[in-house]
Amino acid sequence: MPKSLALDPKKMKEAEAALRTQAAKLLSEGTVTVFLGHEEGWDGLPVPFFATTPEEAKRLVWNPLVAFNLAKYLLDRLTGEEKVGIVVNGCGSLALDRLLKDRRFPRERLFVVGIPCTGLLDPDKVLALPDEARQAALEGGKAEPGLFLKRCGWCDAPNPVVADVVLGEKVPEEAGPQQYPRVEEIEKMSPAERAAHFKTLYEKCIRCFACRNVCPACSCRECSLDQWEPLWLGKATVPSEQLMYHFIRAFDVAGRCIRCGECERVCSVGVPLMELNDKLMKDITELFGVQRPHVPADVEPLGQWTEGDADLEAAH
């Protein structure tokens, strides 16, 4: 997919109609009691929307701006027996699969509607466009590669990996080794340059925890960053605590990150968080031979070992 980022608004319109019909059917038949999707927000940006009646299902939308990760909203519905419907595209299904593999939500209580993805646009960038250009991008499918979400650039899973029903045709996949150009650049720097690079990065962070909250791999019942005892993360916004936070956030999802880049997208101050996640993914591939570290596996790379793993002791 990365090479041929091709938006197909017509296909998306068809998918939207099919999605509304499907959701209305599920809700009226009682298969699910709630359906997680998106609706049009006040500024044209789709916002998460939970339909509970067939009438409400008509408000569901599917367009190039549905970037929000819905899977995490399932955690609000852990209690009870109700069955939940959810719509996902490729990366949405990876997020969902992450929660399922982490055993955070029972598969039996889910009905997954999958839609093969032809690429999504970055809502912030699109909303900033003049009216005509925005129209052309959203309805005519004429979008510069720079308008796409960053994750579309490295996506190798446009088709849902978890789905009960798939609406629309499969999109051809271009599987190849994942590339990490930003990490390679940073690796070439000297240690002092790297330290300075990350210093400027984390000076920006206001620790709003949006990156943690949006992350489908960060789903502990009680987050260690919120604990007072032990106090892993001091409350002061001093550089060493900033580093501690970003160290913990990235390392705790090492081997489980799905490379959706949502952390980076939701960051209100523009910290390029994926520089850390990508580094860990790159190393997991190099050290343990996991070719697609971002695709949830039954056993995560750090949850297993082989006798042939490189020995650290030899390195000194």
Partner: peptide, 25 residues
């Protein structure tokens, strides 16, 4: 064995963050 995998990854990660790798063994 689990520690070895984790620490292998950690060693490279510390280096990436700008901490001299020789400080961690």
């Amino acid at each position: 064995f689990f520690a070895r995998r984790r620490l292998l990854l950690l060693k490279r990660y510390l280096e990436y963050l700008g901490i001299e790798p020789a400080r961690f063994e």
